[in-house]
Amino acid sequence: MIKVGLMGGTFDPIHYGHLLAAETAREACGLDEIWFVPSYVPPLKPNEPGAGGDVRLEMVYRAIDFQPHFRAMDVELERGGISYSIDTVMELQALYPGRAFSYIIGSDRVNDLSSWHRSEELAKLVSFIGVERPGEPIDQSGLPSYIRERLTIVEMPLIEISSTDIRKRRSEDRSIRFMVPEKVYSFIMRNGLYES
């Protein structure tokens, strides 16, 4: 069985924090591959994304082209509408049998898991990998047992980068160099993304 970690999100833009979380989870949990799945409309952030789906997918491709264990998947962008994880997992299981899927989630999102659309059903189909940052411990006590039983926590080195901050810095004409991979930086600059 091929073990695949799924990294969902807007990736608006993708940055080194996303890549570090993916690699940390891959190494700690013995995953064979990490699939980055840009959302069309994220259910928990309905006012995002800022850049279009094709642009965000292109940035993901540019960010991961050096890593043989990373892939970009456009299933949520192709499907359109609100990007519910349960729909994505069911579609990926049908398209790619023989794979065991795990969702990789930042510590800020782990406590939201029980509010995810059809979360109990999702927990029967996937396991969860909570990426814990130093100073941001994951508190499992408030999680239902069906999530706790399917949750593995891995510790990630501290890196304070967010897509929100990157967009804000660009709108203020401040540098984002070394916050995103060089190919993503060049793409953002060449296309004038996130300028005010």
Rank of each mutant, 00 (worst) to 15 (best):
E182V: 05
A100G: 05
S85W: 13
P181F: 04
A100V: 08
K168E: 12
V154R: 13
R177Y: 07
Q140A: 13
G135Q: 10
R148W: 01
E78M: 05
R148F: 04
G80W: 04
F178Q: 08
R79C: 07
S171P: 01
L151Q: 00
V180D: 03
K183D: 13
I138W: 02
S85C: 15
G80T: 06
I138K: 01
S115D: 11
R177F: 03
S145Y: 14
S85K: 11
I105S: 02
R118L: 15
V131I: 08
Q93N: 11
R150Q: 04
R133I: 14
R118C: 14
K183A: 14
G135A: 10
E172G: 02
S171D: 01
E172C: 04
P144T: 10
I129N: 01
V180A: 03
I138E: 03
I161W: 06
W116M: 09
V126Q: 06
E182L: 07
R167S: 05
P137T: 07
E149H: 08
G98T: 11
V184D: 00
S114D: 15
S85Y: 13
M90P: 05
I129H: 00
R174K: 14
D173F: 00
R133V: 14
P157V: 07
R169D: 00
A100F: 03
I138M: 02
I159R: 09
S141W: 05
G80Y: 02
T88V: 13
R150L: 00
R133Y: 13
A94R: 13
N111W: 15
R167E: 02
F178K: 07
P181N: 05
V110G: 01
